[in-house]
Design a binder for these strands. Sequence first.
DNA 1: TCGTTCCGGAACTGTTGCGTTCCGTAAATA
DNA 2: TATTTACGGAACGCAACAGTTCCGGAACGA
Lengths: 209, 209
Amino acid sequence: MSVPPVAVAVAAAERRPGRPRDARADAAITAAAVEILAEKGPGGFTVDAVAARAGCGKATIYRRWPSRATLLLDTAHRLGLEPDEVDTGSVRDDLVLILSQLTTKLRETAAGRILPAVIAEASVNPEMRVVLARFIHDRRERPRHAVERGVARGDLAPDADVEMILDLVGGVAFYRELVSGEPVDDAYVGRLVDRVVAAFGPDAFGPDA
Amino acid sequence: MSVPPVAVAVAAAERRPGRPRDARADAAITAAAVEILAEKGPGGFTVDAVAARAGCGKATIYRRWPSRATLLLDTAHRLGLEPDEVDTGSVRDDLVLILSQLTTKLRETAAGRILPAVIAEASVNPEMRVVLARFIHDRRERPRHAVERGVARGDLAPDADVEMILDLVGGVAFYRELVSGEPVDDAYVGRLVDRVVAAFGPDAFGPDA
DNA sequence: TCGTTCCGGAACTGTTGCGTTCCGTAAATA
DNA sequence: TATTTACGGAACGCAACAGTTCCGGAACGA
């Protein structure tokens, strides 16, 4: 959401002769693109569909984006799937909340449902790979702060590897939801977070944590 | 590999009049299908391409499989990506070996490179979802045995949650390789496995582990 | 020998979707 | 007013691909 588009179509309203671009068309196209991507995924994301939903001609789209691919990349940025802000005062409870939200959203929101196709696209398309990496990095911001608060409070070891904790928690969510197909219920989330927090707790031994 | 095909095309060579099916055509088609799927992924997996690679007509394929989809499902079973057998005598070392193999294979083998597209297909296709779940379940067999040996030896707590350990280790591999795009190097694998093994070690406290 | 089913190969239909072009019209500058 | 670029909408060319049909020829059983 807060990410500027990868490919900006118009080079900032320089004065040109003739009728100017209609700003409402831009809004209609981007809104329609998000809807189509969320409903149909990248596979059903056709320029015809976006134009029809936006109520404009295809030429109006191609005047702003040079290809379907650039429009798709721009749209991928606007997908949402942002974790809610949480701060219960306990790392354990923060992570449980964030994790159960994540698994629910992966299953039940439009953005979550199309993510597998975005991941597949990223595996063959370097541009999409950059977009996805940035997308994921941004969504880790809130869980990262939750873990850092835990370190500061002493719930976790001072040298706990914050990124690895996020990898463990996020990784299992994606893996079970998308890969192995096993559900992630509240009981599982609770046991999982308990283990992870314990593994990086203040009395977790070892030279590196 | 050891999995029987989902859809069997020919109902076991019952005697019919006329020229019998050529067994070499079956072999050529299945071999070509694996190659095409491995090289191009599900998106490039076209019946024309398989027929061309197999050196046969499309009709010869459609005589055996009723549709592209059934051929694709059958082929997905033959992909490989099987972890090697390992038994070093230490859970920690077994898991490190298996995990570094997995990340390497995800990155460098044909089977690994097309997996994202298979996952995406599974997210919208219930038949493919079953195939993928079974595929993953089978590849967890060897790591599962490694962990169970660890429990038996006392390297891990007697009530350690074996499946959760596999989720943690496998989940991070898939997550970093496919989703966040971060590499998984040997140092990371070592630290990760150390943490996981410690979290489920014999002196790991807690009522449930 | 005759009928049936197979073979590889090619042609064909029908659909989908990208990207372009053209239409008549609207909104701007000069 | 003349020019230029915009608009929605429709049509078009082009390519890819699923699935079918036909060809001439080969392999089987009766």
